[in-house]
Every structure is written in C-alpha cells, then in structure tokens.
Lab assay of single mutants.
Amino acid sequence: MGFKLLSKLLVYLTASIMAIASPLAFSVDSSGEYPTVSEIPVGEVRLYQIADGVWSHIATQSFDGAVYPSNGLIVRDGDELLLIDTAWGAKNTAALLAEIEKQIGLPVTRAVSTHFHDDRVGGVDVLRAAGVATYASPSTRRLAEVEGNEIPTHSLEGLSSSGDAVRFGPVELFYPGAAHSTDNLIVYVPSASVLYGGCAIYELSRTSAGNVADADLAEWPTSIERIQQHYPEAQFVIPGHGLPGGLDLLKHTTNVVKAHTNRSVVE
C-alpha cells in the first residue's frame, strides 16, 4: 500500500471513529477524501466538511520552486461564519470567499490569524475590503508590521502568557507558548472536538522541520505538551499544512522538532 493511500485511509478511519463516538456532533463529509496538494491548482481553494458547521479550507501556493498546501478553518456561528487564517495570499483568499459563498452561503463576518507569517495573514486586506472584521493577538499584529505583512485590524486580548485561553464565538483560542513562531495560536472547536494546530503542528508525513527561522526550538516541545494537557479530548487535529489526523500529530511534531534540534547540535 502506497504512503499517500495509507495517509488518506488514516484520515478516513479517524473521521469514521469520530462519527461513531459522537453521532450528534459529527456529520463528516462523505463526498470524498481530504484534498491534497496535487489536486488543488494554485489560485483555487477546496472546502472539506469535518463536522456539522465545521470545515477546513485548503489552498496551495508556490514557494521556492515548489507547491505547498495550506489549511485553515471555518466555523459556523449562528447565521454567520468565523474564518481562521487566510488562504495564503490575496488571490487565494478572494477564491476562498467565493467558494464559501458557493458552498455554504453564509457571510464571513470575523477572521482570526493564528500567527504573523504570510500563509496566515496574506489576504487580510481582501477580507477587510469584503467587510470582514480581522483579528490577531497584539504580538501577531506587531510582528506582521515588522515583517511588512498585512496586519489584522483588531487585537485579541488575554493571550499574552503561555497557557492563556479565551473564548471567541464558537471557538476557544489558546496560546501554548512559542513553537513554530513566538505568537502562534491554537484554535479548538469544543462542539466538535476539532483542534486546529496551525503551523505549530505537523502532518504525519512530514519528517523535516522546514521553516524554523522564527521558531523557538527549545520551547516548542513544552508548548505541545500544554496543548495535549489542555485538549486531551480532541479527536480531529488539523495541521497548518497537509493531512489531518488525531492527537498523534502532536507527538510526531515533537519528535521531528527534537530530531532537528539534535542534528543542529551535532553539526
């Protein structure tokens, strides 16, 4: 069995187990497998329904001669939608809004960016022009300005110390501490036991640490421990890039980060 097929099978099995364990909360999309990078042309966006009122959005972007996937989250909030992270750029984010209108038909009224990198804030200006209120932590807003990236308009308070959590509509926002970046936030959907790890969490097929220019490698494993301790009931975990899975993604990420750190020390 090929690795790609095995990865998709694991996603399907995880979703099936969740649907059985929580039949009222989960209505997993039966329309197909989780979209992969090879299936999404740059400039297009796919939506994948995880649970009743919960979707991931998947886009792709060219970077350094390669094409990478990027995940975000959409959560229903009454007759409105909360968006977590842009679709990595203005063109993708405009396509995301169009796809949401086509498939869901509810307005996106608020959006949260989970850290300051372009795959999370690139497209904020498109959201703002569409009347979406954009939010991020003060740290993310400051770092985005320093980096020359787009800056969300509103500040999220109460997320300055490791372990801080605040309720934001249908989700809980959690600051686990520094990891992929010093400002990275985690998003949890309690009604569906869905954990969105953003770039602080890796997919299972990833074996290298990737972009760690703004990471705190020493603190990252401790931050992941905080996530595990705060959300032990999480059933569906979405990484910032690639295929979702279960809580095993947290341990896998820790292993990859520690291996990278150990290699760096040896070198």
Rank of each mutant, 00 (worst) to 15 (best):
K91F: 10
L250M: 06
L47Q: 03
G78H: 08
H117L: 00
V189Y: 14
T93F: 01
G122I: 06
I104S: 04
T134G: 02
S205W: 10
L83D: 02
Q229W: 11
L249D: 01
S137Q: 14
A66T: 07
S160I: 15
V146S: 08
Y175Q: 04
V265H: 08
V126P: 03
E225K: 08
P239Q: 02
I238V: 09
F3M: 13
A90Q: 11
P35N: 14
R263A: 10
Q235G: 08
L204C: 04
V121A: 03
M18G: 04
A25Y: 08
D164V: 13
E147Y: 14
Q49S: 07
M18E: 04
Y68D: 07
A259I: 07
R142V: 09
N71D: 03
V212K: 09
F236C: 04
S31Y: 15
S27A: 08
E219N: 08
S27V: 07
M18V: 05
Y188H: 10
F116D: 03
G78D: 07
I238D: 00
Y196T: 02
Y135W: 06
S208P: 14
G43T: 13
A15E: 05
W88L: 00
K4V: 11
H57W: 01
D29I: 13
P69W: 05
H230T: 09
N92Q: 14
L24K: 05
S193N: 06
A144W: 03
Y231I: 05
Q235F: 15
T153K: 07
W220V: 01
G210P: 11
Y135A: 04
V265M: 11
G245M: 03
I186M: 13
E145Y: 07
S162W: 14
Y202Q: 13
L185P: 02
V54D: 01
S22H: 05
V75P: 01
N92E: 14
A213E: 14
S27P: 05
A259C: 07
A215V: 12
S161W: 13
E80R: 13
F168L: 11
Y188D: 01
D248N: 05
Y34C: 13
D85V: 00
L243C: 14
I17A: 04
V108N: 01
V126W: 08
E80V: 15
G131F: 13
A90K: 09
A179H: 02
A165F: 10
G210W: 03
S137E: 03
S38C: 11
G246S: 09
I227N: 02
G65M: 06
D64F: 12
Y175S: 14
Q103E: 11
L247K: 14
V146L: 09
R76V: 07
F236V: 07
V212M: 09
S22Q: 05
V266G: 14
L96R: 01
A259P: 09
L96H: 01
I227R: 01
I224E: 02
I238N: 00
K258L: 10
Q49H: 04
L243I: 12
V121W: 01
T207H: 06
Y135R: 00
G105S: 10
E39G: 08
L127N: 00
G53C: 04
P239Y: 02
S70M: 10
T86D: 01
C199G: 03
V187N: 03
G163R: 13
T114H: 00
V54A: 10
V132S: 10
R46A: 05
A15T: 04
G131K: 12
M18F: 04
L47E: 01
Y231K: 01
I100K: 01
H57L: 02
L249E: 00
G246Q: 05
T60C: 10
F168K: 03
V187K: 00
R226A: 08
K8D: 13
L143M: 06
L173D: 00
D29E: 14
D216V: 10
G210E: 13
L204Q: 07
V67M: 04
G169P: 07
I50W: 09
W88R: 00
F3A: 07
A234E: 03
L185F: 04
Q49V: 11
S16W: 13
T222R: 12
H117G: 00
H230E: 09
G197Q: 01
G197L: 11
K251H: 04
E145S: 11
Q49K: 06
A259Q: 08
E233S: 10
Y202C: 06
